[in-house]
Design a binder for these strands. Structure first.
Lengths: 306, 306
DNA sequence: GCAACCCATGCCGAAAATGCATAGACTAAT
DNA sequence: ATTAGTCTATGCATTTTCGGCATGGGTTGC
């Protein structure tokens, strides 16, 4: 049994004639005749009485007609429903970033994106790398901009930003006004850090491990804004991406410095499920990002001349 | 969209794997892969996430799965339902006859038929030729044994019996003991007749019209049994098929005679819808009838020697 | 690093569907 | 009564579709 056959059957019943059914379906009459024969032979008995005045249903035909109608309706509905689901999906971008990214990158990016695609609903989430990856795997999220590296080979990763981590100090802090700070003095001051487990924190941990120096932890938090507030109130110093303090630096509300003889970078990259077909919004947002890349790549100015 | 594709889709979802679905359906894995691709391209988007651990449904897939399951169930049910209907039909014989036939032919015939086909439900109806034909046309009746001729070219007619009409009289009637009765004396006695419209009545009407003799109608009724009772009580004489009085003649409860120099016959034939496929019970009952034909062809004995 | 497994795909042969032409049956109208 | 028109069935040729085989690309697990 085949939906094509059911469609022909329905047409024949409704038109009361093989010939008219064939016209309606834009096929030859012989095709209709044959498919009806196949259907009847499959079901083991005639579905229609062929009389001179037109066809009428046998009891079996009546039974089949009810089912044929229902199946036709089911198919029509499911096709419609799926196309709606897809429209919705095409009109939806679920994106996530680490905490810093959500504050300093996504707003600008999505503002531009939204201007170009007003019909796309935007959903922005944040969370730890692990949590975001989990959401991506569950298809509850389309795209994320995360600090690399990303564990898991099922993810497509496109590295796109290299942000320098710089030391920030409160205006009255003893280290302030230094152009560079050596690792040892960094080690002697209490640090306000990202939470353990975050990639940026790992970078800092790795740095001190490489230097074989101890860390003094003043505090750990997940948000770069909290870190900044803590540093501003004199709780300690911190290593943060330059982009997070660029505005304050221009307003002279923060002092910053590089580590002596060394630069610390963290890498940011777009992350999405490898196996997935890429929905339009994803490719679009990547395109828009590439256009704006220079804006996000803000580098701390060189201090050699300062 | 195709039931085959839906079947494959269901199998893939349930097995969680293209390969295992292919095994279950006894086809190659490539066939499954292809049909799923066709389905997805028809619906305009992926139905499954192909991940390394197995396939999982996309939202569209979820939607389709519900419909696919329902369609599968619908088809299974309608096939079963139709096969039941057909079993029932194969085990059913709806047969009709004129009033006389139902009394003198069908009982013997169906007794024999039933002995050979105990599993066939028998339904016997009677009625006027017109009414029976209507039921045949509506497929509410399979077969009828009627007095010919049958109007309407949509009917298949097989003439099978020729019954002689004879005059019957009450034992004390003045015409009794005559071997033959001439048309004129027939015309002079009141007649108990079949109802107008019946084929047997038409035969009688035609006879008197041919002879250009008037008829004296004592009474009209539809049933040959009533006619016999009326004749027995002396209300008049009648022309009835010999078979209807054969038993009484043997028991000497009725006298009968031919019309002088003339024999009147009525023709009986099997009637069924021309266009219809012949169900087994019909061909069987026709076969059984042919076997027993001699029993029904009981002729009035010749009177020449009497 | 290698074997095992999974899905996708190019290619070919088999099967199915379709169209065309036409037969066969019937109707209706001249 | 004959004829023209209509409807379904069917033989034949063509096109389309489907399935299988072999294989490629990728991943997992030993």
């Amino acid at each position: 049994m085949d939906v094509r056959q059911l469609e022909m059957f329905r047409a024949v019943v409704e038109e009361g004639s093989f010939t008219r059914a064939a016209l309606r379906l834009h096929v030859s009459q012989s095709a209709v005749s044959r498919q009806l024969q196949l259907l009847e032979s499959e079901l083991g008995g005639p579905l229609l009485h062929r009389s001179v005045k037109g066809v009428t249903l046998t009891p079996e035909g009546e039974v089949l007609l009810r089912t044929a109608n229902r199946i036709e309706r089911d198919i029509r509905e499911v096709v419609w429903e799926i196309s709606e689901t897809q429209k919705l999906k095409r009109g939806q971008l679920r994106i996530a970033g680490g905490g810093t990214v959500c504050l300093y990158v996504l707003p600008k990016l999505l503002k531009r994106f939204h201007a170009q695609h007003k019909d796309v609903d935007l959903l922005v989430k944040t969370g730890s790398t692990i949590a975001v990856l989990q959401l991506l795997r569950n298809h509850q999220l389309d795209l994320a901009l995360l600090t690399l590296p990303i564990p898991g080979a099922d993810m497509e990763v496109r590295s796109v930003l290299r942000e320098e981590l710089v030391v920030i100090t409160a205006p009255k802090h003893p280290l302030t006004l230094r152009k560079t700070i050596d690792a040892r003095s960094l080690s002697e001051h209490p640090l306000v850090l990202f939470e353990p487990g975050s990639n940026t924190r790992m970078l800092v941990d790795q740095f001190f491990a490489d230097q074989q120096l101890p860390m003094t932890v003043a505090m750990e938090t997940e948000s770069v804004e909290i870190i900044k507030a803590m540093v501003a109130s004199g709780l300690g110093i911190a290593l943060v991406p330059y982009v997070a303090i660029a505005a304050e630096v221009r307003a002279r509300r923060f002092a910053w410095a590089r580590i002596h003889g060394q630069r610390l970078y963290r890498e940011q990259g777009w992350v999405y499920l490898k196996s997935d077909y890429l929905p339009r919004p994803i490719v679009e947002v990547l395109r828009v990002f590439d256009e704006m890349k220079s804006e996000f790549g803000e580098k701390p100015p060189s201090r050699k001349v300062t």
